[in-house]
């Protein structure tokens, strides 16, 4: 493959699958080993789940469903946002500032492999989240609609795409400290008024109309529809696809490696 000027042994690259798998494992371990990341991605969603199910601090119109059946899909949506958006944007922003992205881009992994590894790492962490949150919810009496499980998984993938694209857009354009502040602020705003856990229709004033068109509201409504047995609203899918395209195009054009 290489010309005869090759010195000694020329190593060559590992296979693309091995490179991406290595990067995905590396990213996953980095998130699961980091205390702050673990707090945001696992501890906070579980506490919210238990708190919302076991107390009535937050008034929720569950439309006849049990509280745990109503709250769990929203907590899963939140879990997706914490990993795909909050945790990923902060990690990528600091990796960018510290030159990690540039260094890895010079290895056979390349930029494409780095991106693929990041997405797979996010999905791996989400798998852990779903297992932990699902187990706690089942213990609290959660009975999801079995036919809704597959559509719910599809929606989580779509939500992951939209929020990972947003994470890369932020991480590739703002300073690391700015990303840290914005990512946490946006997470809080989405939890309170983004339609993740509290359905858009139950939000006050104009938020009721706006939230359904946010990626957070679309993901929350879609997961509730799937897992409560009402079916996935077409609007959720359309909204998530549109945001994924918009964030993806923005990140593709504006992401700066330096």
């Amino acid at each position: 493959m290489s010309p005869s000027t090759t010195p000694a042994v020329h190593a060559g690259a590992a296979s693309p699958a091995r490179r991406v798998a290595a990067q995905a494992g590396f990213e996953t371990r980095a998130i699961l080993r980091n205390g702050e990341q673990l707090l945001v991605t696992i501890v906070v969603p579980v506490l919210l789940l238990v708190g919302l199910v076991r107390t009535s601090v937050v008034e929720l119109d569950t439309a006849g469903a049990t509280r745990v059946d109503f709250v769990t899909p929203g907590v899963l949506a939140l879990a997706c946002v914490t990993t795909a958006f909050t945790s990923q944007s902060i990690a990528t922003a600091f990796d960018r500032r510290n030159g990690v992205l540039r260094l890895l881009a010079t290895t056979p992994l390349g930029r494409g492999g780095l991106l693929a590894g990041k997405v797979l790492g996010v999905l791996a962490v989400e798998a852990v989240q779903v297992v932990v949150i699902g187990t706690v919810a089942l213990a609290l009496g959660w009975r999801p609609e079995p036919t809704g499980l597959l559509p719910a998984a599809g929606l989580l993938l779509l939500g992951t795409a939209a929020f990972t694209a947003l994470a890369l857009l932020l991480a590739g354009t703002l300073r690391a400290e700015g990303v840290l502040a914005v990512a946490n602020l946006v997470l809080v705003l989405l939890v309170v008024g983004g339609g993740l856990i509290v359905p858009p229709a139950e939000l006050p004033g104009p938020l009721a109309h706006v939230a359904a068109f946010l990626p957070s509201g679309a993901l929350g409504e879609g997961l509730r529809g799937a897992l409560l047995g009402d079916g996935v609203p077409a609007l959720s899918v359309v909204v998530l696809v549109a945001w994924t395209a918009a964030f993806g195009a923005g990140a593709g054009r504006l992401f700066r490696w330096h």
């Binding site: 590992a14 296979s15 490179r19 590396f26 980095a30 510290n98 030159g99 990690v100 260094l103 056979p108």
Partner: peptide, 25 residues
């Protein structure tokens, strides 16, 4: 790189193992 470009949250040996995993030999 001049600024290192090393991920900060991992152990030194793990970092080197990770970069090594990108190569066949």
């Amino acid at each position: 790189l001049q600024d290192g470009g090393l991920p900060t949250g991992v152990r030194a040996a793990e970092m080197l193992r990770h970069v090594a995993a990108m190569y066949a030999a």
